[in-house]
Design a protein around this nucleic acid. Sequence first.
DNA 1: TCAAAAACATTCAGGCTGTATGGAAGCGAT
DNA 2: ATCGCTTCCATACAGCCTGAATGTTTTTGA
Lengths: 191, 191
Amino acid sequence: MQERRSNADRRQETRAALLSAARALFTETGYAETGTPEIVARAGVTRGALYHHFADKRALFLALIEAEAQAIAASIDAASLDATDPLTALRQGARAYFTAMQVPGRVRLMLIDGPSVLGPDEMRRIDADTGGATLREGLAALPGVTATGEDLAALADLVSAMFDRAALASAGGNDAGPHAAMLDSLLARLA
Amino acid sequence: MQERRSNADRRQETRAALLSAARALFTETGYAETGTPEIVARAGVTRGALYHHFADKRALFLALIEAEAQAIAASIDAASLDATDPLTALRQGARAYFTAMQVPGRVRLMLIDGPSVLGPDEMRRIDADTGGATLREGLAALPGVTATGEDLAALADLVSAMFDRAALASAGGNDAGPHAAMLDSLLARLA
DNA sequence: TCAAAAACATTCAGGCTGTATGGAAGCGAT
DNA sequence: ATCGCTTCCATACAGCCTGAATGTTTTTGA
């Protein structure tokens, strides 16, 4: 019995299987420690399929990171829609980011392996393509923030660094309480 | 002609040669892209020497990172000795950190490859063993900071994240001005 | 229905890591 | 001084992985 599938379907299915298997293994074992034989075995295909869909291991990882970044940005957008004043909007966005980053493996993908494998520049680009502007606008709306242009971008970058560090602190079963609370009070000082 | 060297000398010399060669290649090409054959060729020894002194490639990298962290901490300590009031002390420490992180390759070693190869936990341990306490004390001395214990540690971690991000922004020939200035004004708000 | 293209499988070459084995040089005791 | 022991280092080997090249099957479109 041979099930007749369209090329588009086949393509998308194996791509999804590869991305899913790669995500599982990369988050469990790390990028460098995970081999492509392992990935394709888990995905139920061969290495030929992998190298047909992706130029190399790095390209597979890049596709994974981009999908993950979009999922995170979508979560934040969905959560911070009902904004009353700028500060609570920012706080809601921060909470949404933390909960989004608690999805298993996300910290490792986005904050550890991502910058190392893809480089900081590419990670910045990905961030800019997904949710980068949101934070800038959220900060600019705060009454205590007068920065614009480059200064505003720098401020957003610094605040984003604190978000990331707080998310990192909450990984591995650690208590995120102190970091999140402290970050919240720092944001309150900005307003 | 055979130069008679003591075992202690031989050991330290080849170790230094290996660490120096590894530092050069890791900073130029990155950890994953640098092979041990390349390292030992540059150091003028063989892979046998490398695996005699270090358990594996990771252990060599670890020794390198620890030495680098101590060098950075030493630079900061040396620069922030003449402290008048807490805020300027912190500012001087910040400036010292930025100049220390402008040594070529340091950003890549400490902020990109380090966390990926050694893991965030080990990087935290290294930071705690070198200059971790300095920042906590400097922040605690600020009049506007009332946090203690876990909260103080969380604040120091968040501020440290901003330092790192600012240093990262200044890497690759980018202009560090906006980040450094913005960070400076944020620190002033804390006091 | 049939050629062309897409999707996938298999094979191959090169390189790298870590280990095991071998040799040379220093060290301590006699 | 020399002899066993240890340290230091070099060479050889086995296993694995990556990416490219080559084959095979399935789908597509005319």
